[in-house]
């Protein structure tokens, strides 16, 4: 019997509990894992559901407006790469991800792969040996926009999380991942 020790504090765990209390819902363990892991979400989906695929939906460059500049911590007008992807498994969409990438802060040799959008971010970080850290900035529930309604064929609420990837103390990417609240509700075994 281990009789003492230090409590391991976890702010994300607190945030999950807060949303559950506010919304009167109970997240499944699978949902909690997908919302709180710091590493690659595709690796988890792969373990849960077998082989998964990544589909590039849209990509383009655009100058950062004031809002984008603020959350990426770049100058307004700086060119940002915008990419939307969908992770697919078992023949259906699983997770939508929208990324804003400060390309000029990323390793030059990774630019083509980043713009191409066919490799998940976690894989790219590994491929190019990028030392980084992730900060999950928020977890929340929201109404779907037109894109999400069209992709997932549902009007139900979505669960989303925002996180940033930081390299050399600068944000290189901000990503939002979303899935319908009824997804991943089966418990893990």
């Amino acid at each position: 019997m281990v009789s003492k020790g230090n409590l391991v504090k976890n702010k994300l765990h607190d945030r999950i509990k807060q949303i559950e209390a506010e919304q009167g819902i109970k997240f499944s363990n699978t949902q909690k894992v997908l919302l709180t892991i710091e590493g690659s979400i595709t690796a988890i989906l792969d373990v849960l559901y077998g082989t998964v695929s990544i589909f590039l939906l849209r990509r383009h460059f655009e100058p950062a407006d004031s809002e984008t500049a603020a959350f990426l911590d770049v100058e307004e007008g700086e060119e940002i790469h915008y990419r939307e992807v969908l992770i697919h498994g078992r023949g259906k969409p699983m997770i939508y991800a929208l990324s804003y990438i400060a390309l000029n802060r990323c390793k030059e040799e990774a630019h083509d792969d980043l713009v191409n959008g066919e490799i998940p971010i976690g894989k790219l970080l590994k491929k190019y040996e990028v030392e980084s850290r992730r900060e999950i900035r928020d977890i929340y529930i929201e109404k779907p926009n037109a894109t999400l309604r069209e992709l997932f064929k549902t009007d139900e609420d979505f669960v989303s999380r925002d996180y940033v990837i930081i390299q050399n103390k600068q944000i290189i990417m901000r990503t939002k991942e979303s899935f319908p609240i009824s997804y991943f509700t089966e418990e893990m075994v």
Partner: peptide
Amino acid sequence: CIRGPITTILDVLYGE
């Protein structure tokens, strides 16, 4: 397979 701290997952599964 997770690359982050295992305690995060344990918190999710078992509480703190």
